[in-house]
Amino acid sequence: MKGLGLLGWLLVAVLSMGAAADPSERLADPAMEARAKALFPEIRCMVCQNESIDDSQADLAVDLRKIVREEVAAGRSDTEVRTYLVQRYGEYVMLKPAFSLTNAALWVTPFAIVFLGLLAFFGLKRSSPDQGQETALTSEEQALLRKLRASEVE
């Protein structure tokens, strides 16, 4: 029953999804507006402390939103809009650094650490004489173990 309630709730949520932007800024075409809106979180409001133009009410953010909407309305693709902004304002405007060779250290390091770490962990463990170091228990030790186990069960 609870699952059904959740499902209904989700459907309502999806169907009533609306635009959030200031109505005076919005584009008439909902598909284009959605595309523009999806681009906003990637673009930095450069005079703000550390906000995307999606979050900021600063004048520059308003201007940048306008530029993005105009570009989208003029039929540019997402990539073209990004390239245009980078040409105009420099790499600093994009909150997502480019996947370039110079940024390789930034993008690769996180995964390299995990990959090499796992390799080292499983590799070293396999090659270490783990099994060899364990010797069989003496009969006294086995008796002690039986005793301990018996006391744990009760």
Binding site: R44, L95, P97, P110
Partner: peptide, 18 residues
Amino acid sequence: GQSLSVGTPYFNLTFAPL
């Protein structure tokens, strides 16, 4: 000497999968 930004999209693509 170049300035660039590292924001939420970067962390969504690196930190989140980890």
